[in-house]
Design a protein around this nucleic acid. Sequence first.
DNA 1: GGCTTCCCATATGACATCTATGGGAAGGAG
DNA 2: CTCCTTCCCATAGATGTCATATGGGAAGCC
Lengths: 117, 117
Amino acid sequence: MPESTALVKGTLDMLILRALRWEPTHGAGVAEWMRLVTNGTLRVEEGTLYPALRRLEARGMIESEWGASERHRKARYYQLTPKGREWFWTELDKWERYVDTMNRVLRYGTAGSIRGR
Amino acid sequence: MPESTALVKGTLDMLILRALRWEPTHGAGVAEWMRLVTNGTLRVEEGTLYPALRRLEARGMIESEWGASERHRKARYYQLTPKGREWFWTELDKWERYVDTMNRVLRYGTAGSIRGR
DNA sequence: GGCTTCCCATATGACATCTATGGGAAGGAG
DNA sequence: CTCCTTCCCATAGATGTCATATGGGAAGCC
C-alpha cells in the first residue's frame, strides 16, 4: 500500500473538475475517485473537499442539487458548468507550463543559458 | 516580455536551494537568478523571499553570513548545507512523482484503469 | 431502539505567498 | 557636504488553501 502524499496547493480544484468530467457525482464519490485513480497516493480529507466544492460552486465552475446516492443516502450531486469545463483547460495549461519551467530549471539548470554568475 | 506567474506553493524552497547550488548568494541575487533563469516567468517578491530564506535557515537547510555585495552593499550571503543539498533531491523526487501522477490523471484519465463509475 | 454506515458540513488552526511599507548604507550629482 | 537614488534586508498584515477535529442527519441492520 503506497503511502499518501499531501496535496500541492492549487491542484485540488483541477482534480475535482476532472472527477466531474463524465457525470454528476457527490462529494464522497469525488474523494473515492481521487483515491482510486491515483492508486491511493492522492487523498482528500472531507474537511478539505467540501469547502473546495462550495468555493467552486460560488465561482460558477460547478453546480449542484440534492439527490439520492446509490446507497440511498441523501447526497449533493455536483456537475461541471460550461464555464468550469473551459476553466479546467486553461488551468491545466497554466499548470503544465509551470511544471515545464520547474523541470528545466531544477533538473537541467536553466530555461535559458545562465550558469554561475 | 512574458507575463509572470504566481508561484505554486511548495515550490519556492526548491527554487531557492537550486539557486544556491553553485556558490553562496545573497537574497537579491537569488531573486535575480530566478528571474533570469525562467526568462521572467517566475518571480519572487521580497516579502516572500526573505521569510522563506529565514525558514530554510531555521531548518538547517542553508546557512548565512554577512558580507559585501558586488556593488559594495551590506548583504547576507546564503549557502547550502549538506543537509539542504540532500533534502533538495528528496524534495525534487517527491515533486516529480506528484507531477507525474497529476499528468496521468488530468491529461489521460487515470493512473490505473477506472472510467465512469 | 440502539448501533453502524454513509454523506455533508463547519470551526479551528497551520502555513506559504502577496502586498505594502520602511530603513540603513553606499554612491553619485551638484 | 548635502540631497537623491539605488541596493539590499526586513517585517507586518491580509489572503487563501489545506489539514485536523468534530458533529449531525438519515438509512439500514440486528
